[in-house]
């Protein structure tokens, strides 16, 4: 009964809700009202990137785009937890024993924002996390065309302090578009001989 009476405030639309539905029952720490939650459409698409298993979680729609912009553009850190709060149990079991490697963002942007948005999103999985990849120039991939996007591999370097030999690696990113950044990161990770690589992305833009 306590569960039903608890009043929560939706993190996206600030509406109060006391709804008792199946998702709230399974995940008591879900922070979205039913309308906002139903805007996230899970697809769980399995694809392959350079022969490595890739899991795409959600459909790319306006709602996802806007929430990601609130997080990355406006720096609204509270919103980070909503992306995985309704499915994190499944992911936690699926990637048990892995080590998360974050796809890098430019260091100065991170400082401006005050946090790394990827580590905030994936924090909820409670899987150990490292960020050995460093991006050394500040060009947004979304401003470039396909030819220029491929040059990204010259701008990402590996921090030699990290050793991932014989470890299971989970490479995570928010949205992939052409896949150039992901490919460049994957090449660098592969050079350091991990035991196994899997990839997890929130969404894929088309």
């Amino acid at each position: 009964m306590k569960l039903i009476q608890k009043i929560k405030v939706c993190k996206v639309c600030f509406k109060q809700f006391t709804e008792f539905n199946m998702v709230n029952f399974l995940h008591p720490d879900n922070d979205l009202c039913y309308e906002c939650l139903s805007c996230f459409i899970p697809i769980f698409e399995n694809t392959k990137t350079q022969n490595e298993k890739t899991l795409i979680l959600y459909e790319y729609n306006d709602f996802l785009k806007n929430t990601l912009y609130k997080l990355k553009g406006n720096g609204d850190i509270e919103i980070a937890s909503i992306f995985l709060s309704s499915i994190y149990l499944f992911l936690k079991l699926k990637y048990f024993g892995y080590l998360i490697v974050l796809v890098p963002s430019f260091i100065q942007r991170e400082k401006e924002r005050g946090f790394n948005h990827l580590s905030e999103i994936f924090k909820i999985l409670k899987i150990p996390m490292i960020s050995p990849l460093i991006k050394i120039n500040d060009r947004k991939q979304s401003d470039l065309n396909l030819e220029e996007r491929k040059k990204i591999q010259d701008y990402i370097i590996w921090d030699e302090n990290f050793n991932i030999k014989n470890k299971k690696i989970l490479l995570v990113d928010d949205v992939i578009t052409s896949g150039s950044t992901l490919n460049a990161c994957l090449n660098l990770v592969k050079k350091h001989q991990p035991k196994k690589i899997q990839i997890l992305v929130i969404s894929k833009a088309t």
Partner: peptide, 15 residues
């Protein structure tokens, strides 16, 4: 009101 690195900030007018 949200908290970023322990500092409070306003989420209403963040855009």
């Amino acid at each position: 009101i949200g908290y970023k690195n322990g500092e409070p900030y306003c989420r209403k007018c963040i855009s």
